[in-house]
Write a protein that binds this DNA or RNA. Structure first.
Lengths: 218, 218
DNA sequence: AAATAAATTTAGATAAGACTAAAAATTTTA
DNA sequence: TAAAATTTTTAGTCTTATCTAAATTTATTT
């Protein structure tokens, strides 16, 4: 059994590993958790003793298979709770994160399995992120940042790279939601903005936005 | 904002106050929380500084109005979550306590209000205990322990005094659930057991059971 | 009303998790 | 490749919430 704090570290390392492949640095973890590097060192020593991570001084950490399983389970809970909040309790996709951060630490296998069934075994959370199954397996789909699409390419909006409420509310305002079809009309070299068409409406999307919106090309 | 531990102390004092009226002793709290009296002294000093309880050395504690409100809010969350688990997630009444003990500490006013609405604003939890409203008010109904009913008196089963899974499973086995009509046929002086009729079936109930089952006389 | 028992508080220790400041190792730069 | 910069670790401190053991207060007996 792991403490909330331990689970948060494990989850942070898990997320960082989806980006970098190499050993995860102390500083990267500290930044992710807005804590200090010295606190991270303390914690990864403990997690290393518990065989959750492999740790060699100054070399960063890697999750063990066991660690990955623990992490995936926390992520599974987080994402299932997010679905629950949006689908059943009228939360909007920009309101769920903080509450799910708390709910993900509730210890009860029965609870999370029943929630899963109650929701009809969803595969993705409200931000388009895949929900790991009970064994920690996730179904990764091919997706590209909108900023990488070429002129005239099109696809479906399937996820976000930034789950901040500011960003999500901005998308709401623009009418950009998961599942929407998007076609790139033009790419501006000047400011790297893109002109897109969505719901038969033309709009210009800044590079900052295009860099945080995932599209499944079609 | 209070820590989980602080909330647990506040809740314990609240429950003890429903039994005793007088100041709640350090030992009583320690027993309820299966902790040591010295730990309780430490905590009530802190809660006293936060104006949650009134504390005079060696005299026990009383909740302030503020403390009562905090307590009622935790109890409200606990009981609403219990209803949710039973009504929506197929938990039985003897399985909900431990999970609700965790869920009651989740901080999100929106979450609990949405759960409340989602459940149709229930007034009682699965054990028959009343759910405080947002202001902490509870609707107390007149109820009596089965052991206090006289011969030929009858009423409806409305609650339990012991929420241990052993006791609740025992009631399940006997077919005794909330809402059932019960009539006392006979009281045995010998062992203080009672003969009752429930669902047109006669059965004998030991004093231990009768002392933990609440009846609303009718 | 003493003496004894029980309850409560104090003092000091411990563990988890975080921090600061300084030391050590690694990486980058010139 | 030596100097500078950055990263990481260590050492020591702090807070929260525990605990044990001893001291103190209150309650109960005789």
């Amino acid at each position: 059994m792991f403490s909330q704090s331990e689970e948060n570290y494990i989850k942070a390392i898990y997320h960082l590993e989806t980006i970098s492949t190499k050993g995860i640095s102390t500083n990267a973890i500290a930044k992710k958790l807005t804590t200090k590097a010295s606190s991270v060192t303390d914690m990864i020593k403990k997690l290393s003793e518990k065989e959750v991570v492999v740790y060699k001084k100054y070399q960063g950490v890697t999750l063990t298979d066991f660690g990955k399983k623990v992490a995936a389970n926390v992520v599974r809970k987080h994402r299932l709770w997010e679905v629950f909040l949006v689908e059943k309790l009228n939360f909007s996709w920009d309101e769920v994160h903080d509450v799910a951060e708390q709910l993900e630490h509730i210890k009860s296998p029965k609870l999370i399995n029943e929630i899963d069934a109650f929701l009809g075994f969803p595969t993705h959370d409200p931000h388009g992120d895949p929900i790991p199954d009970k064994e920690g397996k996730i179904n990764i789909i091919e997706k590209s940042l909108l900023s990488t699409l070429l002129k005239n390419e099109s696809g479906i909006c399937v996820g976000v790279n930034d789950s901040s409420s500011e960003f999500l509310q901005f998308l709401d305002k623009k009418g950009i939601t998961l599942g929407k079809q998007i076609t790139v009309l033009e790419k501006e070299d000047f400011d790297n903005s893109v002109s897109i068409i969505i719901d038969n409406k033309k709009m210009s999307i800044s590079n900052k936005i295009a860099n945080n919106l995932y599209i499944k090309k079609s």
